[in-house]
Amino acid sequence: MLTQESIQAFVADWYKKLDVHAPMVEVLPLLADAELECVFPEVTVYGYAGFESWYQRVIRTFFDEVHTVTKAEADIQGDTATVDVVVQWEASVWSAPDASSKRINADAYQTWSLKAGPDGSPILTKYVVDDFVPREGSATL
């Protein structure tokens, strides 16, 4: 059964894994393969294969990532939940032949859909980036 506590822990674990570029074997158990839809600013992906393609590109592009959750409010309806998430994302990016990397600092406004997995813990079924707002002084993507 989904609870506010289990969802808060899930959100924290999700971003910790993104920050450290966790291997896919650690990320896949958090996702619902057949139902998964992820709407990112640059692409929409489906299922494990689509997510892995996106994830592998991202972890090879950005480094020194820090995700700071500023909001994670869940509306739980039985074994599903809709979560309103706001995260401040900071990351460095280097593009050849630039002499140095650039720092991105932005707020991402997101809507997640979760369901209870077989053991009752949350599993991500839909991840939508609703808006992406660079902070003052941020490099552009």
Rank of each mutant, 00 (worst) to 15 (best):
Q4D: 13
A74N: 05
A12Y: 01
R57D: 09
A139L: 01
F10D: 10
V129R: 01
E35I: 02
T111L: 12
E42I: 08
L114I: 06
A9M: 08
V93K: 11
V86G: 06
V86M: 13
F10M: 08
V20D: 08
Y109F: 09
D84V: 08
L36G: 05
W94H: 13
A99E: 09
D64S: 15
F40R: 08
V39A: 14
W94D: 06
A72Y: 01
A72K: 02
C38E: 10
P134C: 08
S53L: 12
E90P: 09
R57K: 13
E52F: 00
V25S: 15
Y46L: 09
T80G: 06
L124K: 04
L141N: 10
A81C: 08
W112T: 02
H21Q: 14
C38S: 12
A9N: 15
E35A: 15
V85P: 07
V45Q: 03
A32K: 07
H67G: 12
K102E: 12
G137L: 07
R103P: 01
E5D: 15
L2D: 04
N105W: 03
T80W: 01
L31C: 05
P41R: 05
A22I: 06
V93C: 07
V20P: 01
V128G: 00
R57I: 13
D64E: 13
I7L: 07
V27K: 13
L36M: 09
L124D: 06
N105D: 14
H21Y: 02
E73R: 12
D84T: 09
P118G: 13
S92V: 07
T140K: 15
T125C: 14
V11K: 01
D119L: 02
P29I: 10
S100I: 00
P97I: 02
S6E: 05
T140M: 15
S53I: 04
C38T: 04
Q110S: 03
W54V: 10
W54T: 09
